[in-house]
């Protein structure tokens, strides 16, 4: 079992493990709301659009986190403002600002001599360079995000479930939309260093989607999503450590792999397990054909399984 302990003997790996666990939990929880509201594309856009903010902060020698946060908020409000006109749809507005912001970031960075190295670090993350201060910052922001979601959970859930109901209950839907955008921006920003700009979305969407396949209860879904995010993150780092794969990529691949396994084999709902369960329950469609019910038999042969 020494292979389990080995990576923990390096300080940079301890920091990396700490960072990925925090990111897994924060993204896992925030991601539940992203998937429930169907905001995956928006989350992706936000992740890419913060890029110019990071670059500007980097060039000015300021805080990358603050640069990213400012950019995220500008883009979030920009999308709202453009789609408010009624002629440009929400996803079109997202597309415009997402690509535009990203190109702006690349343009700014490309004038620098260390262009290629910096670009790679920003886009793919540099988890092995996480310092103790980075870790403290991530933990602090994470605590703010998680406590805010916990405090406003009922409002956030009602707004996601039925906006008209939320309005009828006197909830300021616009305000909670903006609050959620800021929380989402924070979750993205803390994930940037670990998994990088391009792959942040995977940490937001995949653990939550996996959790959704496993439960019908929101509370369980939130806990499972956080757990899956953290565990897959740690497993991904082991793969990265021993196989020499880029850390962000290996974390995301493990997460997606777990989703695939659950999608196929989840008890009751998995594509394969459900098929097997049906077959056990109803018997084999050809062998167990009822001689006195030709229509049912034809239907069974046609679909390969009962039409129920």
């Amino acid at each position: 079992m020494s292979w389990l302990v080995e990576p923990w003997q390096h300080a940079f790996m301890q920091h990396a493990f700490g960072a990925i666990i925090l990111v897994g939990v924060i993204s896992g929880v925030a991601g539940v709301f992203v998937t429930l509201r169907g905001l995956a594309f928006f989350g992706d856009a936000l992740a890419h659009a913060v890029f110019p903010g990071i670059v500007i902060a980097h060039l000015l020698g300021g805080s990358v986190l603050i640069g990213a946060l400012v950019a995220a908020i500008v883009v979030a409000f920009g999308v709202g403002a453009i789609s408010q006109s009624g002629r440009v749809s929400n996803d079109t507005a997202i597309g415009i600002l997402f690509a535009g912001g990203f190109a702006f970031g690349v343009a700014l960075l490309s004038s620098e001599r260390s262009y290629t190295r910096d670009l790679t670090a920003f886009l793919l993350g540099s988890i092995l360079g996480v310092t103790r201060q980075d870790l403290a910052m991530t933990a602090g922001i994470g605590a703010v995000v998680l406590l805010t979601i916990l405090w406003f959970r009922r409002e956030l859930v009602v707004v996601a479930f039925d906006r008209t109901l939320a309005q009828a209950n006197g909830i300021n839907v616009w305000l909670f939309d903006q609050l959620f955008l800021v929380l989402l921006a924070l979750a993205i920003v803390v994930s940037l260093q670990t998994v990088g700009n391009v792959l942040v979305l995977a940490m937001l969407v995949t653990p939550a989607a996996t959790a959704r396949l496993l439960t019908e209860r929101l509370r369980t879904m939130v806990v499972l999503s956080a757990l899956i995010g953290a565990v897959c993150g740690v497993a991904g780092l082991y793969v990265s450590f021993y196989r020499g794969v880029a850390s962000g990529a290996s974390v995301v691949l493990v997460t997606v792999g777990v989703f695939g396994i659950v999608y196929l084999f989840a008890p009751g709902t998995g594509v394969i397990t459900a098929r097997v369960a049906r077959r056990v329950h109803y018997g084999h469609p050809e062998r167990d054909a009822f001689p006195d019910q030709p229509e049912t038999n034809a239907a069974r042969r046609g679909t390969g399984r009962p039409s129920m």
Partner: peptide
Amino acid sequence: GADWTFPVS
């Protein structure tokens, strides 16, 4: 107006 696929009872 509600999302009836929501994971709630």
